[in-house]
């Protein structure tokens, strides 16, 4: 957006009432649930039980404490891995976006690791870090860090040059420039990357728990899979989806708090 453009409208016209969005989501969920139930009953195969059976299994697993204990283990892995990724994403991404030399030096590795299937590193982590929490954190990092590095770098590069020039004219040093101008200006795009990173971190968490260190929700899935307990596998899948949605909602909550200044018209286009 050019700063020369006239000021944007204070409130964007909304052609769709806000109230209609939520019911539409619920209708979609309900339709999915019905479809699952019908297909599950019609198929009659053990690996795809109907929804009602899955929900009953989930309730039983919740009642005997199996879910909660493992969920907390998984959330701990997720939080730690994501925190490390986020820190790396902000620091490395900002450095890449701001300094051409850093980008030239690191860019090829970051893009390589962004597209590399993160699980191929699992044996390495297993050998080096052992089957403990550090391996899972490493897998979460491999899944989520690089997308945040890349989006942060892009966001920083796109900060309007006139804002940087303005801050320099008031004597801003490099630290002030980054913390007071560049990161706030880049925050809408950075947070879009953080949202993607959060989703990938959940995937990394469950994969790490299934294939490296058998703990948390991943352990239940693995055990249930080995005993061909389709209902338990899908019950855990529901829990994982809930974790993913909740964590992304958390990012969106932070996003709204931090980027309330972005005009609605600009928001709709991203």
């Amino acid at each position: 957006m050019s700063a020369l453009a006239p000021p944007r409208a204070r409130t964007a016209p909304r052609f769709e009432p806000r109230a209609r969005r939520l019911p539409l989501g619920l209708v979609s969920l309900a339709a999915g649930a019905v479809l699952w139930e019908v297909v599950g009953r019609a198929a009659g195969v053990p690996f795809f039980p109907p929804l009602s059976e899955v929900v009953a299994t989930l309730a039983a697993m919740t009642a005997n404490g199996e879910i909660l204990g493992n969920l907390l283990v998984s959330l701990g892995n997720l939080a730690l891995g994501f925190a490390v990724s986020l820190a790396a994403g902000l620091v490395v991404g900002t450095a890449m976006g701001r300094y051409r030399r850093v980008k030239a030096a690191l860019g090829v590795y970051v893009y390589a690791l962004l597209t590399a299937p993160a699980l191929v590193f699992a044996p390495i982590f297993f050998s080096v870090l052992g089957p403990g929490q550090s391996s899972i954190v490493a897998v979460v990092f491999m899944y989520s860090a690089f997308i945040m590095i890349v989006t942060t770098a892009d966001a920083v590069e796109q900060v309007p040059a006139h804002l940087v020039e303005m801050a320099r004219s008031y004597g801003a040093n490099e630290w002030q420039l980054v913390t007071r101008v560049i990161l706030p200006a880049a925050s809408p795009t950075i947070l879009a990357g953080v949202r993607l990173g959060m989703g990938r971190a959940v995937t990394g968490m469950i994969n790490g728990e299934m294939f490296i260190a058998v703990t948390g929700l991943g352990r239940i899935v693995t055990q249930a899979g080995k005993s061909f307990d389709g209902a338990a596998v899908l019950a855990i899948l529901l829990v994982v989806i809930a974790v993913a949605l909740a964590s992304v909602a958390l990012v969106q909550f932070v996003d709204r708090r931090l980027t309330g200044w972005v005009p609605d018209t600009a928001k709709e286009s991203r």
Binding site: A3, L4, H162, L163, M166
Partner: peptide, 11 residues
Amino acid sequence: MVFQNFALLPW
């Protein structure tokens, strides 16, 4: 300096 495009911090 005063800038042609204002250069205000939008946030």
